[in-house]
Computed example of a mutant assay.
Amino acid sequence: MTGTSEGGEADGTALARLLAARGSALKGYAYLLCGDAALAEDLVQEALVRALGSRRARSVEHLESYVRKVILNLVMDGTRRRTRWLRIRPLFVMPTEPTEDEGSTSAVRLTVRDALLGLSPRQRACVVLRYYEDRSVAGIAEELGCGEGTVKRHLHDARRTLADMLRELDTTAEKVGHGV
């Protein structure tokens, strides 16, 4: 077996074309889900490797959606593992603050990123799929393997949490700006 897609294109070539055309969009999607640029690059690479070894995504048209699904699953699985680890890890280690590259990021991006990171992984996945991927509630439910009511609940809770966080951050920035 030579590893060709339905159109006769080699799988590696299809992945290379996908990466050239949509690589930054895939990295942006992964970044929104995980909140870390280096981890987002790793997630995209891992998803591409898995897509290369899979026979599910045989056509170029379905390759991007397959890679996005793999990225989502990797984030969700990684979050589950990390949550288990945090339960047994000694709590004497203080988490480090994320570093800020002043030349390439804006205050708004950092504020939104911090607000997204304040959500639970399921809420963050629902928000990214709904507002970044423009998916329907039914599509999100299918993607995450849960009911539509659960997705609606996650979106409702996430919107409320984001509104509170962004309002709080805006109030803090306003006080700092006025020298209070």
Rank of each mutant, 00 (worst) to 15 (best):
T13D: 01
A51C: 07
D77I: 12
R17M: 04
A57P: 04
P98D: 11
E41H: 12
L33H: 00
S54D: 06
E97C: 11
R82C: 13
L155F: 06
S54H: 08
L18S: 01
P95Q: 12
K175N: 07
P95L: 04
P95S: 03
V128I: 03
R68A: 04
C146T: 08
D164V: 03
A57Y: 06
R153D: 03
G139S: 06
A115Y: 05
G78V: 03
G12N: 10
R160N: 09
L74F: 06
L166Y: 02
T79V: 03
A20G: 05
H156F: 09
A125M: 11
R80G: 05
P90C: 14
G179R: 05
T4N: 15
G177E: 14
L48W: 04
D42N: 15
L39H: 11
E143F: 08
R50E: 00
H62V: 12
R80I: 09
E41V: 14
L117Q: 15
L63F: 13
I140H: 01
E97F: 03
E168F: 09
A47I: 07
L63D: 01
L63W: 08
V180N: 13
P90Q: 13
I140L: 02
M165P: 00
A163Q: 08
R17D: 03
E46D: 10
S59Y: 15
G53Y: 02
A163R: 09
H154L: 01
G53S: 10
L110D: 07
R130A: 03
V127T: 11
H156Y: 02
E64V: 02
V112A: 11
R130G: 05
G145T: 05
M76R: 14
R22M: 00
R160M: 06
R82S: 14
N73V: 02
A173K: 07
A107C: 11
A107G: 14
L74C: 02
P95C: 05
L48F: 01
V176E: 09
D101G: 02
L32N: 05
R124A: 05
L26D: 00
I88N: 06
T171K: 13
T161F: 00
L19P: 01
G118A: 07
S136A: 03
R22L: 07
L144M: 04
A173D: 07
E174T: 10
L26R: 02
Y131E: 09
L74Y: 02
L117A: 03
D101M: 08
H154F: 06
G3P: 01
P98G: 09
A16N: 12
L19C: 02
G7Y: 10
K175S: 06
A57M: 10
D101Y: 14
G149W: 00
C126Q: 10
L39A: 15
G147A: 05
A16T: 10
A138D: 08
V75S: 10
P95M: 07
F92S: 14
L166C: 12
N73I: 11
T111V: 11
Q123P: 00
G177D: 13
A37S: 15
C34I: 09
R50A: 08
A47H: 11
I88K: 10
T99A: 15
G147T: 09
D157G: 08
M1H: 04
V44Q: 01
V49E: 09
R124Q: 05
L52Q: 12
V151Q: 00
V75C: 07
D157R: 15
R80D: 05
E64Q: 05
V60N: 07
G23W: 03
H178M: 08
A14R: 03
D114G: 08
L63Y: 01
V137F: 01
E174R: 15
R109S: 04
A25V: 05
V60E: 04
